[in-house]
């Protein structure tokens, strides 16, 4: 218990070593391998010297790589924007209009769908909006439509719909947490100074809850941009996103260097967008001081 800095450092390192060794061997080493592969010369299912930046040059010249990256980015950003916008009023309602002792119950209700099998939720959408799906058969039997809509074949919009539904519960919680932290007396002060409710919301509540909005965006953006299942099921499987494309490159074409380079660039893209979000967050927190 009596700890000098050095013995404390030793005890800490000893304690964290099992976890640290695990992630170094099984995460850091593989990621480093991908990085090394990405600058090697490619063959089918093997890599060789010399080191080269050709793989990265390829990414720049062939339009399909840029197209996949940009499409994934735009889909993920749209999903993020939609989920966060839809979630904000819900978080606001639970935080401001629900009695404190009932809040956990509401949050529990909102999070349950998230904890039910993701595969089943996405597959259910396939059942609903897919070819000969529930939606089409219902609309047709009710006589509203005489042709199937086949929404699932709408490609990008249908992917956005399914992803927005799948990640919706993620978005509510961080916004709720930041709204809970808003000092209620500030709002009373705002109204006391003659501001309308709406202006008070815009000038006080919304800025104070921005960290939660940004956290929500991040939480939705990262898994969405890497989603694999949804593009396989809806959009007729013709709209591959990053994850599906990596699969094609690495497993089907077995082009390890090219696939690795693509993975590295995707990681960089996700990192840059995420850092952008974090930077925005810092600015908001900084602006409040």
């Amino acid at each position: 218990m009596a700890a000098t800095p050095r013995s404390e450092a030793r005890a800490g390192l000893k304690l964290i070593s099992p976890t640290a060794i695990y992630v170094i061997l099984l995460l850091a080493v593989p990621l480093a391998t991908v990085l090394v592969y990405s600058v090697m010369t490619g063959g089918r299912a093997n890599v060789s010297l010399p080191l080269t930046f050709d793989n990265y040059a390829q990414l720049g010249t062939k339009w399909v790589y840029g197209y996949i990256l940009l499409k994934s980015l735009l889909i993920a950003l749209s999903v993020t924007a939609i989920t966060v916008l839809l979630a904000y009023p819900v978080a606001y309602f639970v935080s401001f209009h629900i009695k404190p002792e009932r809040k956990s119950l509401w949050l529990f209700l909102i999070t349950i769908p998230f904890w039910t099998s993701y595969i089943i939720r996405v597959s259910l959408w396939f059942v609903i909006i897919g070819k000969d799906g529930l939606l089409d058969s219902s609309l047709m039997s009710l006589g509203i439509m005489d042709q199937p809509l086949n929404l699932a074949s709408y490609g990008i919009p249908s992917i956005i719909l399914v992803l927005a539904h799948a990640y919706a519960p993620f978005a509510v919680l961080p916004i709720f947490v930041s709204l809970e932290k808003v000092d209620r007396s500030l709002l009373e002060a705002g109204q006391d100074l003659g501001e309308s409710r709406w202006i008070t919301f815009l000038r006080v509540t919304l800025p104070l809850s921005m960290p939660g909005v940004i956290a929500s965006s991040l939480i939705v953006f990262i898994p969405t941009v890497g989603d694999y299942v949804t593009p396989k099921l809806v959009g007729d499987g013709k709209q591959p996103l990053i994850a599906n494309f990596i699969e094609t490159q690495l497993l089907k074409l077995q082009d390890f260097p090219q696939g690795s380079a693509f993975a590295v660039v995707s990681m960089l893209m996700v990192a840059i967008v995420s850092i952008g979000f974090v930077f925005l967050n810092k600015r908001f927190i900084g602006g409040q001081k």
Binding site: P30, I242, A243, I246, L250, V270
Partner: peptide
């Protein structure tokens, strides 16, 4: 792994 697309974690490990 919280901020990495899961596919990348899976593929990196698979390659190794």
């Amino acid at each position: 792994p919280l901020v990495l697309p899961e596919m990348i974690v899976a593929m990196a490990l698979l390659v190794v």
